[in-house]
Design a protein around this nucleic acid. Structure first.
Lengths: 129, 129
DNA sequence: CAGAATCCAATACGATACTG
DNA sequence: CAGTATCGTATTGGATTCTG
């Protein structure tokens, strides 16, 4: 399996020390993974679409995070043998089982916006899990 | 507010771009936070107890992660004016609202142990949310 | 189009020593 | 007991350039 970021690798070591939380976090705790999962939850997307829709992400990180999610079998990568190349990403069945979890995270975050100190209004939220 | 780790700080920038997921992750996505929250979910604990119970954590990181959780008002720190000093940590009311989320994470992680490639049996799980 | 490779600055983190 | 302070290394992640 591909080497993960150290944070995640270390979380994996913690799995037996604490509980399933660390395991879940090791999968979706990456820097850009919430953004990716939010989008793929809506359906299949191409590499370029993801890149455009996730403002500020570098190609390096987009590929990196996609690969980690792929290794964890949360998403899958579909390559069409065409020229120019076309690659699509979508949730796997396992990925779809994360839906209640993604929803719980999203709900909590949206619910407790004020308490956690985000003064910005609801205007720009463009992604609901 | 205290400066967060860059991962979390950057996630906060993503909040308006994606959704509540990033907000939730910015709070519980830290390296040792699952371990801490797992333990404080059981009840109040002293600094030293946390340190002993979380194997491998350095004092630097324990304090760091506790402070971040405190800043986010997920846990609170109670100092008893005694000698020798005694400090206890416990969930705040806001922290307790994370319980469904923590449980969802834990459940998913425990459920999908095999798929995500953890061959270790259930023996050492000492913390259920 | 969808990446891969490389370079470099910023961060995170552990170890250790010290303190009220 | 419950931390702080400091140091050094490892890792991260952005920018840029290159390619089938």
């Amino acid at each position: 399996m591909r080497k993960k970021t150290s944070t995640n690798a270390l979380n994996e070591k913690l799995i037996n020390d604490s509980c399933g939380m660390a395991r879940a976090l090791s999968i979706l705790g990456g820097r850009w993974k919430p953004a990716i999962l939010c989008r793929l939850n809506h359906g299949t997307m191409r590499y370029g679409e993801l890149k455009k829709s996730i403002e500020g992400i570098s190609e390096r990180m987009l590929v990196n995070q996609l690969r980690e999610l792929e290794d964890d079998q949360i998403i899958e990568r579909i390559v069409y043998p065409e020229v120019p190349p076309r690659v699509e990403y979508r949730m796997t069945d396992l990925g779809k089982t994360m839906n209640p979890l993604l929803k719980a995270m999203s709900d909590w975050g949206n619910m407790h916006r004020i308490e956690v100190g985000d003064p910005v209004e609801d205007l720009n939220i463009n992604c609901k899990v």
